[in-house]
């Protein structure tokens, strides 16, 4: 098939960007979306033109590295699908496709479709962990975990940290990402000791990074390639409230991490 691509091109973080249109003939429906971009890039390189820069690594929907806004939808038109798992059979001959990077203030564009998502790492740094230095663990079966808790925890833990939720949110909120981590750990007995400190620290960091507030639009879950559910945001809110009321003031050294 033949497509027309309109792609955001931006040399680096400091430069202004603009849309550039490319003709993309001879595209096979069996190609993945990123393989289609590979083909377009090969042709650009052969003409000594700068190829379109985009992040990717595993190409099987698990590393969270890829992320392209396709026709206004983060990760494209298919639900529960990352950009790398999207296939060209989701498009038809003659389609015009617009490709943009994630748009959210805390995700500055580095080049073309590549953004800086280090804010997500800093949110995890603020408390998205269980403090258990190597060698301190009891036997794996010493604490029983109800199957149902383990399953729900896993539903939340499936988040790949791609950032599509924040890119899709009209307020640029990272609430779904943060809620996924909070819920993953709060649903397990091992996560209890730091539960409320964790939520306070992570939310504070999210605010500091400049992410917006959540007003329950639900765009995040619709864009999420792992279909992380809205209910986890409710879990976060409950924990946050409880934590704000009952938590001790924080001790120097971070959330229970000393």
């Amino acid at each position: 098939m033949r497509l027309t691509l309109t792609v955001w091109r931006q040399k680096d973080a400091k430069s202004e960007g603009k849309f550039v249109t490319y003709d993309a003939p001879d595209i096979s429906p069996d190609m993945s979306f990123l393989e289609m971009l590979d083909v377009v890039n090969q042709r650009l390189i052969e003409k000594a033109e700068d190829p379109i820069a985009f992040d990717h690594d595993c190409r099987e929907g698990i590393c969270g590295m890829c992320g392209i806004v396709v026709n206004g939808n983060p990760h494209g038109p298919r639900r529960g699908t990352t950009s790398c798992q999207l296939h060209m059979r989701s498009f038809k001959d003659g389609d015009a496709i617009t490709l943009e990077p994630w748009r959210a203030t805390p995700f500055p564009v580095l080049k073309d479709l590549i953004v800086d998502r280090s804010s997500f790492d800093r949110i995890i740094m603020a408390g998205g962990f269980i403090t258990v230095p190597t060698g301190n663990a009891p036997d794996g079966n010493a604490i029983l975990v109800p199957k149902d808790c383990a399953e729900r925890s896993m539903d939340a833990a499936a988040c790949i940290g791609c950032g599509a939720c924040a890119a899709a949110c009209p307020n640029g909120s990272a609430m779904l990402f943060v809620a996924a981590k909070i819920s993953h750990l709060a649903l397990l007995p091992q996560g209890q000791p730091e539960r409320y400190d964790r939520v306070l620290s992570m939310v504070a960091q999210m605010d500091e990074e400049g992410f917006g507030t959540c007003t329950n639009h639900g765009e995040c879950s619709r864009a999420c390639p792992k279909e992380i559910r809205q209910e986890f945001i409710a879990q976060l809110n409950r924990d946050f409230l409880w934590g704000s009321v009952f938590s001790r003031p924080k001790v120097a050294g971070g959330s229970g991490a000393g």
Binding site: I130, G135, A137, N141, I143, L144, E151, L188
Partner: peptide
């Protein structure tokens, strides 16, 4: 190998479980 499983469980790795709550 056994210490690894213990360490990971303690970190909050949501391993698959049986109905009784064991791994």
């Amino acid at each position: 190998s056994s210490n690894i499983i213990d360490q990971c469980v303690a970190q909050g790795v949501p391993f698959g479980r049986e109905y009784g709550g064991t791994l």
